[in-house]
Computed example of a mutant assay.
Amino acid sequence: MALIDHLDHLVITCIDVEATKRFYVDVLQMRLESFGAGRISFHFGNQKINVHVRGAEFEPKAHLPVPGALDLCFIAAVPLDDVIEHLKRSNCPIVEGPVERTGATRKIRSVYIRDPDLNLIEISELI
């Protein structure tokens, strides 16, 4: 039996929390929630992304929390062609793709975009 079952959440560090909210809520269509003492998170499926603002991180935090250091891959709930059309309507440029990649469980077809802090965001469909 493996020690780890699944990912519960991860934390991103951003510079501009309002731009980050717009991207993750409007472009990626995640659900914004507030918790604790003024903290926010973006929810999708059974996971969430907690947000820290550079210079005002919550403790404990990563050793070197910096905006733009992440490379995240999300599996889309809709066909990738629908994602591409949504990204175009949202004026969100595609950095690369669609391209075929190797996912955690099988091959995926992906497009790459960047969030406001220049984190690389891969959106994929299983193939």
Rank of each mutant, 00 (worst) to 15 (best):
A2F: 10
L3M: 15
L3G: 11
I4W: 09
I4K: 10
L7E: 01
L7N: 06
H9W: 06
I12R: 01
I12Q: 06
T13V: 12
I15C: 06
I15G: 08
I15P: 01
I15D: 09
D16L: 02
V17W: 03
E18P: 00
A19D: 05
T20D: 05
K21L: 02
R22T: 12
Y24N: 04
V25P: 04
D26C: 09
D26Q: 14
V27H: 01
V27A: 09
R31Y: 10
R31N: 09
R31E: 12
E33A: 12
E33N: 13
F35L: 06
F35R: 06
G38Y: 05
G38A: 08
R39E: 11
R39D: 11
F42E: 05
F44N: 05
G45Q: 08
K48L: 15
I49A: 08
V51P: 05
V51D: 06
H52D: 15
V53Q: 12
R54H: 12
G55W: 04
G55N: 05
G55S: 04
G55H: 02
E57K: 05
E57S: 09
E57T: 14
E59V: 14
P60V: 13
K61Y: 06
A62R: 11
L64M: 08
P65M: 03
P65R: 02
P65Q: 03
P65K: 05
L70Q: 09
C73D: 10
F74A: 03
I75R: 11
I75N: 10
I75K: 14
A76C: 14
A77Q: 12
V78M: 15
V78Q: 14
V78F: 07
P79G: 12
L80C: 03
L80Q: 01
D82E: 15
D82Q: 14
V83A: 12
I84S: 07
I84V: 15
E85K: 13
H86W: 08
L87P: 08
L87R: 01
K88P: 04
K88Y: 09
R89Q: 11
N91D: 15
C92Q: 14
C92S: 13
P93N: 07
P93C: 07
V95R: 05
V95F: 04
E96Y: 02
E96A: 15
E96T: 11
G97Y: 08
P98G: 07
V99W: 02
R101W: 04
R101P: 02
G103W: 05
R106W: 04
I108C: 01
I108H: 00
I108P: 00
S110N: 02
S110P: 00
V111Y: 01
V111K: 00
Y112A: 06
Y112C: 07
D115P: 03
D117M: 00
L120Q: 11
L120N: 09
I121Y: 00
I123C: 00
S124N: 02
E125T: 11
E125C: 10
E125Y: 04
L126H: 13
I127A: 13
